[in-house]
Design a protein around this nucleic acid. Structure first.
Ligand code: FES
Ligand code: FES
Lengths: 146, 146
DNA sequence: TTACTAAAAGACAAAAAGGTCTTTTAGTAA
DNA sequence: TTACTAAAAGACCTTTTTGTCTTTTAGTAA
């Protein structure tokens, strides 16, 4: 579905938000471990997200990553666009340069419906809304242990 | 949506089937040109599809690619699985190793619905059904020229 | 059977994605 | 103000994907 970078970013941010809700600011190695992602790569990705402005960080002892509570929630579509560009979920499923309902490909009718439901999903859900679900329902951020 | 190889394979096969319906057997360079794909890469991909058995070919003058009319239609899901493996449209949208409704990720509920509609689409449609649509409705296999 | 045509095979190369690691900088706590 | 902690930055590497090209093989038509 998403590429690795987006996956790690998404899982990482949800984990960070969840910890923030519990009054903590996790660091890179904790995040990487919890979301089962490569530690250095995770660090690099989180740094990029801070630079973009999606996330805040604090250096030094007791430091770590956190969300500015004053900022609006971060919809998945914004995150995805930032990590993998616009490529997904806008183009033609058949690979034409542009999806054009005036000049549709043979997949257009069915595919554009699916595409719309994907866009709805990633526009409605935010990092925060996902974290809240985990918080309330004990949903999983990593594999079940059984 | 799909990777390049799958896209070229899909467009190429639909083009070939369409030409077959018109009594022709196109060759690699014709296919590549018509679907706007890199010629040598297209050749390589088509060769692989022949080896797999999705497609037939005939060498020599008047030769080219064609579908065995006796064979059943080729659903997109088979093509996709052959070109890019099982990775898409089965796993967890959040990146967990397995999608497990007993231990769902926070995307599970909404994502699994979308995933199912994708699977429905690629199971229902076949190379042949798409070619037929193009044949009947003059749908587009490449960009509009305007 | 010769000349031609077209696919088959596979080596090779460029670009993008994914990942690792070292050095530097900035902060905190005692 | 020293010692420690943790992020920032960026060089470097590996793997996968995408793409190119040459040589070989198999067939057709005349
Ligand atoms: S033209 Fe292909 S999806 Fe719209
Ligand atoms: S567990 Fe993530 S989609 Fe099912």
């Amino acid at each position: 579905m998403f590429n690795k970078e987006t996956e790690y970013a998404l899982r990482g941010l949800v984990y960070i938000k969840l910890q923030n809700m519990r009054g903590r600011r996790p660091g890179t190695s904790e995040v990487a471990k919890e979301i089962k992602a490569p530690p250095f790569y995770t660090a690099k990705i989180l740094q990029r997200l801070v630079r973009i402005g999606f996330l805040n960080s604090l250096k030094g002892k007791g430091g770590g990553f956190f969300f500015d509570p004053a900022k609006p929630d971060l919809p998945l579509i914004k995150l995805i666009t930032a990590t993998e560009g616009d490529r997904s979920f806008s183009g033609c499923g058949f690979g034409l340069k542009h999806c054009d309902s005036e000049n549709p490909c043979p997949l257009h009718k069915k595919y554009s419906a699916v595409r719309q439901s994907i866009n709805k999903l990633i526009s409605e859900e935010t990092v925060q809304s996902l974290a809240k679900k985990v918080y309330k329902n004990e949903l999983s951020l990593s594999e079940s242990m059984k």
